[in-house]
Design a protein around this nucleic acid. Sequence first.
RNA 1: CGGGACGUAGCGCAGCUUGGUAGCGCGCAGCGUUCGGGACGCUGAGGUCGCGGGUUCAAAUCCCGCCGUCCCGACCA
Length: 474
Amino acid sequence: MALPKQNEDFPGWYQEVVRAAELAEPSLARGTMVIRPYGFAIWEGIQRAVDDRIKATGHQNMYFPLLFPYKLLEKEAEHVEGFAPQVAVVTHAGGEDLEEPLVIRPTSETIIWATYAKWVQSYRDLPLLYNQWANVVRWELRPRVFLRTTEFLWQEGHTAHETEREAREESLRIVHEVYLDAYERVMAVPAHAGRKSASERFPGAVETYTLEGLMRDRKSLQACTSHYLGTNFARAYGVRFLNREGEQEFAFATSWGLSTRAVGAVLMAHGDDRGLRLPPALAPIQVVIVPIYRSDDERGRVLEACGRLAGELDVHRVHLDDREDVRPGFKFNDWELRGVPVRIEIGPRDLDAEQVTVVPRLTGEKSQVGLGGLAQHVSEALDRTQRGLLEDARGFRDEHTFHPKEMSEMAALLEDPGGFMIASWCGREECEAKVKAETKATIRYLPLEQKDPGGPCIVCGDPGTEEAAWALAY
RNA sequence: CGGGACGUAGCGCAGCUUGGUAGCGCGCAGCGUUCGGGACGCUGAGGUCGCGGGUUCAAAUCCCGCCGUCCCGACCA
């Protein structure tokens, strides 16, 4: 089984890696997927990293229901307008048509803020710093495994605050301390933190922050979002509190989410022609040991050594591949496809020389390591891999970041080689739309703080007000 | 919903033009030999040819209708 070449056929490469590494597969209902154990273990690693950080920033987990009445959705005008086209509605249950149709949540702002109304009376009740891990359903027109499925898993944080300042700080803090930290330190995926333009903003948000990562096919992936919602939801659902001056006031809101799309981000940011490459901090298996033997005699000797050495490693997740029905060569390829960071081969030749063979997935280079120094050698290889993947991805991104001055130049660069196009923008939606119509590229992010782009709008030539990053996206 | 393609074994496909016993590769099962980079041999299991109708002595193949999937666009974490 050979993978399609990444450079020549990226979508094919992606689908084949997902299938062959047994991460997930399309399911029976349109646009849904079955996540297989290995793929789910990667998601669990992401969950763990994100959940730890959510808790470290003072949030608690809770759970809200999957279904809520349709009329709740309608209370926030922009929100319903944005989500109505992609909402699945239950109209029939218990053997009859429902008087009140129920929405399958596409996101939970509505039900949560309708409930927060009951929880908040006074400024003393604030802030509410809550998160939930849940599944949501959005009727997307073009699903793609992990990147855009009809149903997906995510976490969604929903906080309520006393002041605008506090809520704005919260939404930014999540971007940096939760998402950026998890992406860069655990998933080894470099990302730009930025603001969304008005047209790309979450329905109902005042400001949407995003992390954008550049994938191996030079498209940008929105890796998560964090929204400052102002008082839009508090007004719609009546979340009022008595402030310190004794006046009624609407609470300020944030919401933020990261989904199973993150698994796709890891695949597309690090994969190569041999398959997945997983950062050790995330990998379900950090070190795999492949025994090599012919006779029963060798088998006993080798497996004994494998067991002993596995115990000596300073690594949490070690797997001994003792399958009898496939040969070592098959196992090498199998684990490379699955992205295991370090492979150790142990055979009779190694044992005779009191050494083992160590092969980091990052480089694929074999080296012989004496038994005494093995634990340290492996730890160093894992550290190098964790750093190396991030550096590789960052280098790739920087090589594909350009500063075009003319529309024609930008269009040509988007075509080949592709990547982020940093260019001046006047801030008008017409100009944004024109770029999309001509090149399919959209503004992926604006700097967190608006700054002088130092030149005329690349589209219309009027004075620029924003430094925008354009790219093709998923 | 617009434009294109495709539905034949678990997966990937050939066969259709010119109607006549259902094929190939991978995978799967058994046995043997192998085992330091995706093994090989022999034997075997597995199919309402997407569904319905029509033409015909005879339909995977020709005709009509329907259903479904995928790709490009609009929507999007």
